[in-house]
Structures are given as C-alpha cells and as structure tokens.
Amino acid sequence: MIDEQMAVFIGSGLRLAVPIIFAATGEMLSERAGVLNLSLDGMMLMSAFAAALTSWATGSPLAGVAAGVVVATAVAAVQAVLSVTLRANQLVVGIGFNILALGTTTFLYREIFGPLSRDPIPGLAQLNLPWLASIPVIGPALSSQTGLAYVSILMVIVTWLLLKYTSFGLAVRAVGEDPRAADKAGISVARTRYLGVLYAGALAGLGGAFMSVADSNTFTENMTKGAGYLAITAVIFGGWNPWYTLAACLLFGFATALQFLVPALQLDVPVALLLLLPYLLALIAIAGFVGKGRQPGALTIPFERGG
C-alpha cells in the first residue's frame, strides 16, 4: 500500500519536474549569455497549446511536439529582438509576453476547442522498459514515463557539454560575464545572445509540449500555472549550474507532487498550503538562504556597441 503510493508519488513528481527541467535548462544557457526570459511561462503555454492543437488535428503527438517547439522558438525570436536589439527591459517584456500568451491561448482554446472540450488528445506512449521496471520502489515510476521525459535528462547533458566544452559555450559565458571584453575579442554579443534566447525558447517548447501531449493529454486554460517562473527560480537556486539546476527542478517537482501524496496518506495537512510550497521554497532559495551561486555579471543588462 505504502509502496504503491510512493511509486505514484515518485511518478507524478518526475512528470511534474520534466517541463521545469526542460525550461530551466534552456533558460540557464540564455542567462549565462546575459538574457533573462521572464516570458518562459508564456513560451511554455503557447507550446502546450500548439502541441495539443496539432496532435488533435493530425493524430500525431510527435507532430504536436514539433509544433510546440516551433511556436515557442518563434516567441523567443520576438523576445530576442526586443531584449537584445531594442534593449528593452527584459523583465517587463517577459511579463508582457506572459499576458499575451495567456490571452492568446485562452482565446484560441475557447474558439477552437470550446464546443468539443474534454476530448482526449492523442498523447505520447509510455516506454515501459521491463529492465527499468524491475528496480524496486523507483522502477515502476521510471519506466512509466514517456520518451520525452528521458529527453529532458539528455538535454541537461547536452547543455552541460555545450557550455563546458564547445567554443559556443565559451562565447556564451564570455558574453554573459563581460560583453565588452567579449566584443573586443571578436565575439558577436548579439549573435550569441540571440542563439541563447532561441535555445531557451526551443527547450521551453519541449517542456510546454510535454505538459499537454505527454503528461495530461489535454489542454486547459493557463495550464502552466507558473511553471515558467519555477524554472527561472530553479536556475537561480541551482546557481547557474546545469546539475544543481536539475536538482532544484526535481525538488520543485516533488514538492508539487506532495499535494497528491499527503491526502493519500491521510495526513491532515491542507492541500491549499501544499500548493504554495514550491513557490515558498523558490522564494527562500532566491533570497539566498540556500545555495550561493554567482549570477552572470551582465545578466539582464543590454549591450550597446561602443556605447
């Protein structure tokens, strides 16, 4: 009985963590290049909707994931023009995109799905790897994930390698720390930052698509419920390091999943208070009481050549 509930808890904790892992990993790279995308939540929401719509229209959840990535990357491209080229306030632009994404997806959802809501949308299949399932306690939870969940861990590894061992990663770090010096060294600050923001958009797209076509097989209004903000705080919590960021995402995922475990164990803790737990943890984290990572020197500061 307890084992069964632990398996459900671990499974839902992982499923809740995956979208945040995707978004936070991309965001971490973008922030290392000096651009903060507060619009992450909006990108995920747009992607979740595009993925649901495409999967529903074509019957192919993979096409849905692709559509989600395309849409989120397109949003990121506009965000990059504003943040990098027009040197707009990155935080204000981000809020604007989140409002726009909420309005757009809510509007389209009511227009398109309004009459036929509740219909399940074709979703990605679970992998059900037998050798994984045989591991005690965590095995069933691990093997009941979709392939996309494993991709999130793959992206953490890819991002870590990119940052650490490639010239692009070097450029990203240089541009985020000291854009003026990087510019003098011949690195294009604008190009590097554009790529960083687009990378964050593509990964946020994977995260958003995961929510609608891998986790719930449906779209609901405002379904991200602030997951993008959690991803941003996970980056801060994780000290701009890919592995610590991954750990922070898992922590947030499991903190959110507690709201399913606690009632099942018949503990007398109000669910409402469990709802705020991840955000409270995030607040404590960014207030610097836990973990101390140094943020990139030029984070959120636009760069102007020769200025």
Binding site: L82, L86, R87, A88, N89, V92, V93, I95, G96, F97, N98, I99, L100, A101, L102, G103, T104, T106, F107, R110, P302, F303, E304, G307
Partner: peptide, 27 residues
C-alpha cells in the same frame, strides 16, 4: 481574453519603444 491579448501587446510595444523614449535606457 481578447482584452488580455490587447494588454500584452500594449506592454510589449511600450517596453520595445524605450529605445525611442529613453536614450539612457541601455545603461
């Protein structure tokens, strides 16, 4: 939700125009 769309656009356009209205915005 149409009004939300309009609001989002207003915020984005205004934020994107700071380069016109505030020449010191970059610092």
């Amino acid at each position: 939700a149409v009004v939300l769309i309009c609001q989002g656009l207003i915020v984005i356009i205004i934020a994107g125009s700071t380069i016109l209205t505030n020449r010191k915005a970059s610092r």
